[in-house]
Design a protein around this nucleic acid. Sequence first.
DNA 1: CGCCCAATTGATCAACCGATCAACTCGGTG
DNA 2: CACCGAGTTGATCGGTTGATCAATTGGGCG
Lengths: 200, 200
Amino acid sequence: MPSTTPAATTRLAGPERRAAILAAATELALSEGLASLTLRRVGLRAGVASGLVAHYVDGMDALVAEVFTGISARERDEVEAVVRDAGPGLDGVVALVRTLTDGSRDAVTLVWVQAWAGSPANAELARAVRAEMDAWQALLERPLADAGVRDPAPAARTLLGMIDGVNAHALAGWRDRADHAPLLLRSLEALLGLGAGALG
Amino acid sequence: MPSTTPAATTRLAGPERRAAILAAATELALSEGLASLTLRRVGLRAGVASGLVAHYVDGMDALVAEVFTGISARERDEVEAVVRDAGPGLDGVVALVRTLTDGSRDAVTLVWVQAWAGSPANAELARAVRAEMDAWQALLERPLADAGVRDPAPAARTLLGMIDGVNAHALAGWRDRADHAPLLLRSLEALLGLGAGALG
DNA sequence: CGCCCAATTGATCAACCGATCAACTCGGTG
DNA sequence: CACCGAGTTGATCGGTTGATCAATTGGGCG
């Protein structure tokens, strides 16, 4: 009975191997941050030699940018589903704020903050960050517009800034997590000209 | 005429040398980010051997935390002066928002974002970040309270979150800098229950 | 003046990094 | 079955890092 190792690496076609490496890099980034992405560590995680990682990737900067985009895009999909399930109008926005501040997405927050921090030194990453932020702004604008907000763009940008700022603060363990959602919702009420408690 | 080198390093007493090294590290962090702080580069900047830097510092994590605290504290002093000079009440808050979003403090923003990103891996830095954020919240609360805001704490935290979030966004080159201040001021008007344009 | 201790040097270590590339090995095709 | 090319390996290179420490140097004090 030789070779009981379940996933004794079989040979994969190029694109599949590339996908597997990207998946391993994504897992690694989510558990230890973008800064942990090195040829050797990604290779280890993927069960593959470091040279193979280099072979399928156009430099580490590109890998980091691609992993970041994948993580952000997946989170957008998840949040979009949350918004959809929460019903129409402002209920969706409330659900969005809650799911983005309940601490269940700390790993993603770390990735975002590392992406901002790394943008000045990694042009590809900076480009990816800008593109993802555009997509996030669009995601926020939709339910706001549905709810009858006349000019959703500034509100979406402000809300995005508040969410990102508060989450960055939480990375250092500042203040109580539970405070975040009520704080943001009360600010949003004011921003939209609603009465206090309308969203709480 | 030997030795025309003007600043041929003279010997300094322990505490003075330590201060000089810290000053060099601070310059370096402001021009190239916290991530550029290495024993060798700090030593080069200070005109001193790398071993001497290590001798006066309790590990790089501690150096980074100390440099961060110094940079943040100095910026607080500057901003406090801006608030004071702007006159009483909300004028101070408006001036604060303007000076913190006009792009003249990009170097400090990078330091802050890198500090959040590094907090999970550097406990000393995380502690320093929390302490500085407490101080910043207090700084924001003061003019808000002076202006008659009944509960300045949540408003200060929200404003701090918005400022930090928007500045982090700017690091990746997202959107136009000039938009930030008006956006934040309009949000602040709503937050404080003022009429549109009251702060603009 | 001469000594002594504190300040300072710089070589050294082990560990890691990204990148490269010759060599190997499998899988499918002929 | 034999072969050939694509997938894959892993050693290797030049570079960086934080940390350590014996050796050196300089300045002030006796």
